[in-house]
Design a binder for these strands. Sequence first.
DNA 1: GCCAACGTTGGC
DNA 2: GCCAACGTTGGC
Length: 147
Amino acid sequence: MQYWLVKQEPEDFSWADLLREKAVTWDGVRNYQARNNLRAMLLGDKVLFYHSVSDKRVMGVAKVGREAFPDPSASEADRDRWSAVELEPLASLPTPVSLAQIKAEAGLSEIALVRHSRLSVMPLTEEAFLLILKMGGWNDNKETIDS
DNA sequence: GCCAACGTTGGC
DNA sequence: GCCAACGTTGGC
């Protein structure tokens, strides 16, 4: 099991949109580091969904529903250069976790969300992932989210 | 709205 | 291959 965080401006595609649509093709990533992270995702990996810019909060947990495939939003010539995955919603955080809270938490000072604010797809350690869940009011143990 | 950080492009 | 110019992202 690996853990990730993806960012999206809620005006473009929000957590509520994902809950409504039940699945989304996560395409349009045009940064190599982010793309490499997409390609490393495995079926069932857990993905925190973060609202950037206007909201700046972690909203919920999704899972990888399909591993990397050629990005359908890329031009024919670039189809193999860029990748997409599918994400499915798992659960909303009882209380979304703000960027300010994350920055104030010593245990999260090393995560890419803080250190590399422009990266849109990033890995998280299990510790960081579970800590953010806890900060979001997720009181159960990790087996709950795994089931 | 501003600007820092960063990635990409293209001239040389 | 270097680097200046430029575009984009995203926090503030």
